[in-house]
Amino acid sequence: MSTHKTGTLPSAKQSAFQKFKNEYFWRYLIITCGLFIILLTLGIGFFLVVKGSGTFTEFHHSVWEFLFSSDWSPMDSTTESGGGVGAAIYIFGSISTCTLALLFVAPFSITSAILMTEIAPNSGTKIFQPAIEIFVGIPSVVYGWIGLTVLVPFIKHLFHPKMGGYSVLAASIVLAVMIFPTITTVAADAIRSVSSDYRKAAYGMGSTRWQVIYKVIIPAATPGILTGVILGLARAFGEALAVAMVIGKTRAFPANILSPTNNLTAAIASDMGNSATGGEQNMALWTMALLLFIISIFFIFLIHIISGKEKKKHA
C-alpha cells in the first residue's frame, strides 16, 4: 500500500466504493429480480411437468388414454392404481364452452371496438371505456353467482331442459361476458393504433366511412384484434370458479348445448383438495393442470407469431 501523504488517497478509495455502490449495486439488484422471475416461471413449469407426468410414468397410463378416453375413474388412494384417467370429457367441456363463448362474444366485441373508436370516439372514451373497465374489475365469483341465480333459472324457464339450467350454454354465456372486456379493449387499442395516415389516404380517395373501416382499418388492425381474441380465449380457458358454478359438473359429454357437463378447470378446482396426495386421481388432476399450462403457452406462442408477422410486414 502506498504511503502518499496527499489528501487525495483516502477520498479516492472512498469514491471507488461509492462508485461500486451506485453503479453496480442497482444493476445487480435488477438482474437478480429479473433472474428470479425467470427462474420462478421455469420452476413452475418444471414442477408441473414433474407432477403431471406422474400419471404416465408412475401409473403407466398412455397419453392417448388421457386425451381421448372418456372413462374418468381414477383410484383415489395412495396404494391402488389401474383406474381410468380419460380426461376427454373435461377437455371437450373446456373446448366447447370456450369456442361457443368466443363465437358469442367476438362479433359484439369487434363491433363495440369499432363503435368506441370510429363511430363515437367522444362518448367512446368518456362512457364506454370506463364501463368496460368496470367489467374487468368484477370478480369471477360474482359472475358465477349472477350466472347461477339469474341465468341458469332463466334458461330453465325458457327451454325447459331435462337437467335444469346448468349447461354448456350457461357456461358459454358467462364466459362470453367475462372475456368481452378483454377482447374489446385490445381490439379497440389495435384499431386506435392504426395510423391515421391510412385513414387520410382512404378518405382522400373518396372512400365512405364504412369503406375506410372495413377495407382499411380492420384489415390493418387484424393482428391486434386477433391478439385480443386469443387473449380472451386464454382467459376463458383458465376460468374456473364462474364456470364451475353454472356448468353442472356432470361427468358426461353434453348431448346438446343445454346439457350440463364439466371442464378442466372446474374439475381441478373441485377435486384437487379432496384427492389423496400421490394417489392416481391426484396425479391425474396434476396432468390436467399441466395440460392447461401447455395450452396457455401455446396461446402466448400464437400471439407472438401473429405480432411477429405484423412486425415483419412493417419492417
Binding site: 391510412y198 380517395m205 373518396g206
Partner: peptide, 14 residues
Amino acid sequence: KRVSMVFQQPNPFP
C-alpha cells in the same frame, strides 16, 4: 374521386 390527394408522408396501405 375527382380531386385526389397525395400526402407528405408516403402512406401506402399495408
